[in-house]
Amino acid sequence: MGSIRELNQQLLTKERSAVEIAQAAIDRIQALEPKLHSFLCVTAERAIEQARQVDAQIAAGEAIGLLAGIPIGIKDNLCTKGVPTTCASKILQNFVPPYESTVTQKLKVAGAVMVGKTNLDEFAMGSSTENSAFQTTANPWDLTRIPGGSSGGSAAAVAADECAIALGSDTGGSIRLPASFCGVVGMKPTYGLVSRYGLVAYASSLDQIGPFARSVEDAAILLGAIAGHDPKDSTSLKVEIPDYAANLKPELKPGLARWRDSRNLWRRLGGCG
């Protein structure tokens, strides 16, 4: 599918339209899902409609952001207005949220194209995605193995190129573990960096939303898009968000020690503990 910057370039040079990119992702999902089971719900129509809007913006000569037209998978414990949000639990099987989570709202505004809701261990409780009430996701590297959990659907979908990037949640390793098992990049941000508004709560003092990607740069771009203070989450931190992807260098910079003065940040911010 390509990296975020590659896809963005294709859109800007009109090599491919956002609808073509979205359709390619949906075709791949339909071809692989019988083996992988990473998605609980594929939002094909909605994706094409979102992509059409991005194409209209490009046609009108409007500037688009890096995430515009990028296919993304969303863990099914993040509330999406009008789209079922089940937490892979029978108890929420028919739940359609009347509101949008802050992170998915931010991605919507950025023009990212949601292709579907990804599988997880029920209420994010598990390390293999086998605790889903609906299906067990396979590891793209060996279909007889588990993808890790609890964000196993998001990790498998990114590893199998069903979408370029995905969102997960991490309470005790639920992003990093499946990222490790599926050979992709997964990040849990500092508690409070990303708003939890609209994330179905498991353990509120530990839960944090974060990105999955096939490269560090893509993870940095996605993190930058979802991070930031949100008055709707009382544990959200009031901090400035740097452009994480802007200054990535292929070498280790000397003088990283300038960061050290942040040692007591927690206390200053009045964070947990």
């Binding site: 990222a179 490790s180 960096l193 960061w259 964070g271």
Partner: peptide, 25 residues
């Protein structure tokens, strides 16, 4: 068996920028 292995990098509070830089390098 051809299964991926992950390296965990842990940063200090709010040092995402530095963490991503180290991972990128």
């Amino acid at each position: 068996q051809g299964m991926p292995i992950g390296l965990q990098l842990i940063g200090n509070v709010l040092q995402e920028e530095q963490l991503l830089q180290v991972a990128y390098a």
